[in-house]
Amino acid sequence: MARVQIRLPNAFIDSLDAASRVLETSADEVLEAGTAVVEPRMRANLTGAIGRATKNPSRSTGQLLAALGTTSVKVNNKGNHNIKVGFAENRRDGRANALIANVFEHGRSDQPARPFLAPTRSQTHRGAIEAMKAALTARIEQVGP
């Protein structure tokens, strides 16, 4: 029987432990860096979609745009950190903002689609990932060698 024993230097083990602590404490900051890229672009795309391609003058009340925002970071039962950019519910008339956003995105029989979600996703995907990488790298570099 062969037997192998690997001994790691204490400094390496200590730096792994420190990096692990940084990763646990920086999830919120990293996710918020990503949403800082997504939310402004979504707001701009929604603003451009409101009133576009309509036969009649826009009847926008501004409620959908005002409801757009970012949630706080939440941890689910599996330990995953989540943050969402979306719409607060409900409107003053009781209708769901998600329904209104869906009509904008996909249209209906008497209203053409005015997508703003899909373009936001394609426009911000790389930028959000890069912003999160940069935030995480900055946090890890604080740990030091």
Rank of each mutant, 00 (worst) to 15 (best):
T124R: 03
D17K: 14
F116W: 11
V38E: 01
A2H: 10
T47Q: 12
L99A: 13
E29S: 14
N80F: 10
G69S: 08
H125L: 12
T54Y: 11
L117H: 02
S26V: 02
N76L: 06
N10Q: 14
S109N: 13
A131Y: 03
D93G: 06
A118T: 09
D93V: 08
T25R: 15
A134G: 06
L16G: 12
L117Y: 03
A53V: 06
L117D: 00
L46S: 02
V85H: 00
R114G: 06
V4E: 06
K74A: 15
R108F: 09
A138I: 02
G69C: 06
G94V: 05
A11G: 08
Q123T: 03
Q142K: 14
S20T: 14
V37A: 01
V4W: 09
R126L: 09
A53F: 11
A113W: 04
V103F: 15
R59V: 11
P40M: 03
Q111P: 00
D93R: 07
A33V: 05
A44R: 13
Q123I: 00
D17E: 13
S122N: 10
R92Y: 03
M132F: 07
P145I: 00
L68D: 03
K133G: 07
R52Y: 12
D28E: 14
F87P: 00
L99F: 14
M1S: 13
T61L: 12
S20V: 04
P145V: 01
A33H: 08
A49T: 04
T35C: 09
A134L: 10
T124F: 06
A67L: 05
T70G: 04
T124Y: 04
A44S: 13
A96W: 05
A135G: 04
A98L: 11
R43L: 06
S72R: 13
A67D: 03
M132D: 05
R121T: 09
T25E: 13
A138G: 11
R41H: 06
G69A: 07
A138K: 15
A138L: 08
D110A: 11
I13V: 15
A134E: 10
S26F: 02
P119Q: 05
I140E: 00
S20L: 10
A53M: 08
L136H: 03
T137S: 13
